[in-house]
């Protein structure tokens, strides 16, 4: 499984990338592999306030549905509209074109409490 070193991770298998005051969110390679072919994604709405662990959306495969939880608190400032017609990019590029949304952090320290790549690799290794 691909676990990029520069990202942070939640125990619910979301990844987060810090860029200035915002954090881009997606689901991990491990999560997309466990789900199988993604056929539908429910993205959050721009302007939505989210807090850590709160519902951020849903991702559905041919075999199951999985809730996406917010790994940080803040305001949704951008969503990946392309997922509506091409949810399969989550399988093909979970850390790239398969991003879900961008959140403006409520507090800068929110990002630092997430798992680093080594800790997440240990988590998925069981």
């Amino acid at each position: 499984m691909d676990v990029p070193a520069e990202l942070r991770y939640s125990t619910d298998h979301e990844w987060a990338r810090h860029e200035g005051a915002t954090v881009t969110i997606g689901i991990t390679d491990y999560a997309q592999d466990a789900l199988g072919d993604v056929v539908y994604v429910e993205v959050p709405t721009v302007g939505q306030q989210v807090s850590v662990g709160g519902a951020l959306g849903e991702v559905e495969s041919t075999k199951s549905v999985s809730e996406i939880y917010a790994p940080v608190s803040g305001t949704v400032v951008q969503v990946n509209e392309a997922l509506a017609d091409h949810p399969e990019v989550i399988n093909a590029s979970p850390y790239g074109d398969g991003w879900l949304c961008v959140i403006e952090l409520a507090e800068p320290s929110g990002y630092d409490t997430l798992l680093d790549a080594a800790a997440y690799e240990a988590l998925i290794a069981g």
Partner: peptide, 10 residues
């Protein structure tokens, strides 16, 4: 087997 690497849709 539930799916091979190409996936269920393919």
């Amino acid at each position: 087997p539930i799916a091979y690497p190409d996936g269920t849709v393919a």
